[in-house]
Amino acid sequence: MPPVLLSRGLDPILGVFTGFLAFYLYETHPRNNVPADQRLAELVRWKWVKYQQKKQEEMRALDAAT
C-alpha cells in the first residue's frame, strides 16, 4: 500500500484541489494567452446551452406526440 501524506480521506481532496488550482492558474496566466472563447467556463456554458436546447426539443416532441 502506498504511503499517505495526510490521511486516506484528505489525500484525494488535496489532489483534486491542487488539480483545479493548477488548471485555474494555467488558464489565467498571461503567458498562456488562452482565448476567452476557449476557456473552460465558456466551453461548459456552451455545452450546457446545447444540452438545454436538446432537452427542450425532446420535450416538444413528447408534447406533440400526445
Rank of each mutant, 00 (worst) to 15 (best):
P2V: 15
L5V: 07
L6N: 04
S7W: 01
R8I: 11
R8K: 10
R8H: 06
G9F: 11
D11E: 05
I13R: 14
I13H: 12
L14M: 13
F17Q: 13
T18E: 14
T18W: 13
G19F: 10
L21Q: 08
A22I: 12
A22Y: 10
F23L: 12
F23A: 12
Y24D: 05
L25N: 06
Y26A: 04
Y26I: 05
E27H: 03
H29Y: 05
P30F: 06
N33E: 00
N33F: 00
N33R: 06
N33Q: 03
V34T: 02
D37S: 03
Q38W: 00
R39D: 02
R39S: 04
R39F: 00
L40S: 03
L40D: 00
L40C: 02
L43K: 02
R45G: 08
R45W: 00
W46K: 10
W46V: 11
W46T: 14
W46A: 15
K47N: 06
W48Y: 05
V49K: 02
K50S: 09
K50V: 01
Y51S: 02
Q52I: 01
Q52E: 09
Q52V: 01
Q53K: 07
Q53P: 04
K54R: 10
K54N: 08
K55V: 01
K55F: 15
Q56K: 13
Q56D: 09
Q56M: 12
E57M: 14
R60Q: 05
A61P: 06
A61D: 08
L62I: 12
D63P: 06
A64N: 12
A64E: 08
A65H: 13
T66W: 12
T66K: 13
